[in-house]
């Protein structure tokens, strides 16, 4: 459970926009209308060379197995980190690099 998957290109030309897709297996149980106790991710963040490029704060209306698609400008070669943070503080991580020519 909670194994994140990320799809991004290996290379791009300078200034090109690159599509990033992410997916993590997670039940996102709100605890509102079931007997299961709450089990929710709080935040997803994508960082490029240490800078936040995209973030999502999960509310109760976020679906199970959260997925995102977003578009980053490939200004320079980049090391991406993708971090999903659970409400209990646990982090799930993935990373990837894009070479820029």
């Amino acid at each position: 459970m909670s194994t994140p998957r990320v799809r991004l290109p290996r290379s791009a030309s300078a200034g090109e926009e690159i599509e990033i897709r992410t997916l993590i297996d997670h039940p996102m149980i709100t605890g509102v209308s079931s007997s299961d106790s709450r089990n929710m991710l709080e935040r997803f963040e994508a960082r490029l060379n240490g800078d936040t490029v995209f973030r999502y704060d999960f509310g109760n209306g976020s679906a199970a197995n959260p997925t995102f698609t977003f578009y980053v400008r490939a200004a320079a070669p980049g090391d991406f980190e993708f971090i999903w943070t659970h409400e209990d503080g646990t982090e799930f991580r993935a990373d990837g690099s894009v070479s820029v020519s």
């Binding site: 800078d51 995209f54 999502y56 509310g59 209306g61 578009y71």
Partner: peptide, 14 residues
């Protein structure tokens, strides 16, 4: 609950 979620964007995005 009304909160579905919030995207936070930056100029790094295309």
């Amino acid at each position: 609950a009304p909160d579905i979620g919030s995207f936070h964007l930056t100029p790094h995005l295309a």
